[in-house]
Simulated scan of single mutants.
Amino acid sequence: MPHVTIKYHSRDFTDEQKQQLAEAISSVIEKHFTTYEGAVSVALESFPAADWDEVVYAPEITGRADLLIKAPDYRRS
């Protein structure tokens, strides 16, 4: 506990970038959950952009809006 999954599209990461991202996310999670590094896990899950609305946006963002602590504003992209 805690586990963070980041779903995204249209981006490739090197192994070094993945490691840096995991360290940054872990640090924030450790601080806010008052836990230790070994308790945090982070996953990256890539989807084709064409599948985003059906696979992620509808079921996980609009379909679970009550769980969001930050909603997207796609008008700015």
Score class of each variant (00 low, 15 high):
1 M>R: 00
1 M>A: 03
7 K>W: 10
7 K>M: 10
9 H>K: 04
10 S>W: 06
15 D>Y: 04
15 D>H: 07
16 E>W: 12
17 Q>E: 05
17 Q>N: 01
19 Q>I: 12
20 Q>I: 02
20 Q>E: 10
21 L>M: 12
22 A>T: 09
22 A>V: 15
22 A>H: 11
25 I>R: 01
25 I>W: 07
28 V>E: 03
28 V>A: 11
28 V>Y: 05
29 I>N: 01
30 E>T: 02
33 F>D: 00
34 T>Y: 15
35 T>M: 07
37 E>N: 12
37 E>W: 08
38 G>M: 13
39 A>T: 11
41 S>D: 10
41 S>A: 09
42 V>G: 00
43 A>M: 12
43 A>Q: 06
44 L>N: 00
49 A>D: 07
50 A>D: 08
51 D>V: 02
52 W>E: 00
53 D>I: 13
55 V>W: 09
55 V>F: 11
56 V>I: 12
57 Y>I: 00
58 A>T: 14
58 A>M: 08
59 P>Q: 00
60 E>I: 07
61 I>G: 06
62 T>M: 13
62 T>I: 15
63 G>S: 05
63 G>F: 10
64 R>M: 10
65 A>H: 07
67 L>G: 03
67 L>P: 10
67 L>I: 02
68 L>A: 02
68 L>H: 12
68 L>K: 05
68 L>S: 06
69 I>M: 07
70 K>T: 12
72 P>L: 01
73 D>F: 11
74 Y>T: 02
74 Y>K: 04
76 R>D: 08
76 R>E: 08
